[in-house]
């Protein structure tokens, strides 16, 4: 018996959210007294023995370039084979783009109950109950998985991992690779920026910034803090910023360590996508803006006056002048 963790890669590197999933899966394995093993598909540059640091004892690999694009059907088959081969009773994914494509298929294939969007370790005192995010961050549900095999996909940024100096054993998993029915014809990636879903700091602007020509206030602070930029829905709808920056109930839901909101009112639909952020800072000229109720720190003031001063103060703190 074991816990199997699916490690996701992007551009031949293991993603940050997968290291979280590894630590989470290893913690479950410890809790139920079994080994934590992982699987990586495609070719990766990482030294996979270092996964031992997260508590993984064995890493199964299928090194094949055909697996560098994720096809949910092809991946489901291989992960199901591996799960069966090692007798996995719990399978862990990150609840990211690929996790959302593969975990539901695997659930059907293995007749294994799935909880997606988990935010804590399962309660295994009686049964197997996983806390997950529901109502777009406004509540949690404690979901009981009633099947022999359990699948959990962990929300990014919701589990902090402790590392050790252990090393994992890396073994090639022998399997057959089926043909992908979905052919990827091109990819288009924003290079050099941390994707919004994985960002630890996010600087976000709303309609209060008046127009795209003022976005320097957002991007300059973001650059200083190593942050990714985001925006409210109307800002993306009017075309001031690209759609992929739209966060909220109908955009991306994020949970960074710091969410810095400038000129955003904090409508309930906006909060639904950002309320899991660990620290929220709000800059708004209206002291009645609903966002202040959800914030940890705030300044009531005109962003056009306040932001340049904040940017200067950050530069000073970082020793840049």
């Amino acid at each position: 018996m074991s816990v199997l963790i699916f490690l996701d890669q992007a551009d031949n590197n293991i993603k940050k959210s997968s290291f979280e999933a590894a630590g989470y899966g290893a913690a479950i394995a410890k809790q139920i007294g079994v080994a934590a093993e992982a699987i990586v598909l495609g070719t990766v540059n990482d030294d996979l023995t270092t996964l031992g640091q997260y508590g993984v004892t064995k890493v199964h690999t299928v090194k094949n370039d055909a697996l560098n694009n994720v096809d949910a059907q092809v991946f489901t088959k291989i992960i199901a084979d591996a799960a069966t081969a090692i007798g996995a009773t719990v399978i862990v994914f990150s609840n990211n783009f690929n996790g959302k494509a593969i975990a539901p298929r695997l659930s059907v294939r293995l007749k294994a109950g799935l909880v997606s969007g988990a935010v804590a370790l399962p309660d295994t005192t009686s049964g197997f109950i996983v806390k997950k995010n529901v109502f777009s961050g406004k509540a949690f549900a404690n979901v009981s998985i009633n099947t022999a095999i359990k699948i959990i996909s962990l929300n990014p940024n919701s589990f902090s991992v402790a590392t050790t100096s252990a090393m994992a054993e890396v073994i090639e998993f022998a399997t057959t690779i089926t043909d992908a029915k979905v052919k990827v014809t091109s990819t288009d990636k924003v290079v050099g920026e941390v994707p919004l879903s994985e960002a630890e700091i996010v600087v976000s602007g709303g309609r209060g910034l008046k127009g795209p020509e003022n976005w320097g206030l957002v991007t300059e602070l973001a650059k200083l803090l190593g942050a990714t930029t985001a925006c409210s829905r109307p800002v993306a709808d009017i075309g001031w910023r690209p759609h992929h920056e739209h966060v909220g109930q109908t955009g991306l839901a994020i949970a960074p360590n710091l969410y810095f909101a400038i000129g955003i009112s904090g409508a309930i639909q906006h909060l639904a996508g950002v309320n899991r952020s660990k620290t929220i800072v709000v800059i708004n000229k209206d002291s009645e803006a609903p966002f202040f109720k959800a914030a940890d720190y705030g300044i009531v003031g005109d962003a056009f006056e306040v932001m340049p001063k904040i940017i200067d103060a950050v530069k000073k703190m970082k020793g840049i002048s």
């Binding site: 799935l114 509540a139 404690n142 959800a294």
Partner: peptide, 16 residues
């Protein structure tokens, strides 16, 4: 495969 045992609300923020 699954059933909801219970719901919780997140703890209230300490205030800004």
């Amino acid at each position: 495969f699954t059933s909801i045992a219970s719901f919780d609300l997140p703890p209230a923020k300490a205030g800004v």
